[in-house]
Design a protein around this nucleic acid. Structure first.
Lengths: 146, 146
DNA sequence: CAGAATCCATTCCGATACTG
DNA sequence: CAGTATCGGAATGGATTCTG
């Protein structure tokens, strides 16, 4: 994160222009780029996508998420939920009961993010074998080099 | 990424089934999930997407990428290119000339990854303002709380 | 139950120096 | 030119403890 300095990526430049974002030469929409990165970061966040996926089935409480997402720590779940909430992708509803009950749900915005993300997941599923093959061959070359 | 233990995410489960991947209960395609994650990781990799974007305009040599992607270090460029090459997303062509000349290009596989990724970028561009607003309001709440 | 706070091992990554 | 190798600071994230 920090100050992602943006870049002269033609494709992004083109998309930015299509969205009416001014592109001064040498930098494809500097402002927009960091915003874009922050979204991409979230997708790469390892847990965020899983959380979004969990919530696609309906609201869940904290513990349900904690147990549903195998391997996530309490800390990471909290942190990720805060991020998602901050971005307006997930809503947090505190029920004033005891013991406390907090429900997390996809917002409308969050719901619109799901399709692009799932397209990516689908791409990954489609190409799992191909990628594994490539990796094996690549690794074999490196090993055989000696 | 160590052993990403996979998860019981309904959407992923559904997608996995659609792709004929066996899903034993309690775990949505454990094997597939780590593979999926590794793809998502790459997308979140901060630089990989930029590199892919750069290459979408045609082959580039090492230095062109280095200068074209503002802020990337030589080390990171090398590392990222290796990853992308390993996955078969990018090809590396060494020309036997002096001084050395190495061209990087999108493979066919890499080209198929671009649309889903760009869909994500486009989503981000479309919702930049909305997200920024959410963040501002969220941060304001936190700050005002004192 | 849902979290905040602290501690600490691991990993990441930029800067630098060196090479074919 | 296109890397590789090494070092050290910074950030990441799990485990644990404490709270309303």
């Amino acid at each position: 994160m920090t100050t992602t300095p943006s870049t002269d990526v033609p494709v992004v430049r083109e998309l930015a222009q299509r969205h009416g974002i001014p592109v001064d030469r040498g930098c494809a929409a500097a402002e927009a780029t960091s915003e874009v990165r922050s979204v991409l970061d979230r997708v790469g966040d390892k847990w965020s996508v899983l959380i979004l996926g969990m919530l696609s089935g309906g609201p869940q409480r904290f513990t349900e998420l904690l147990h549903g997402i195998d391997g996530i720590s309490q800390r990471m779940l909290t942190l990720n939920l805060r991020q998602l909430e901050r971005d307006g992708l997930v809503s947090r509803t505190v029920h004033a009961v005891v013991p406390p009950r907090v429900d997390y749900a996809l917002t409308d915005l969050g719901a619109t993010l799901l399709p692009p993300v799932l397209a990516l997941v689908e791409w990954a599923l489609e190409n799992t074998t191909t990628i594994r093959d490539h990796r094996d061959r690549f690794d074999a070359r490196g090993t055989a080099a000696g």
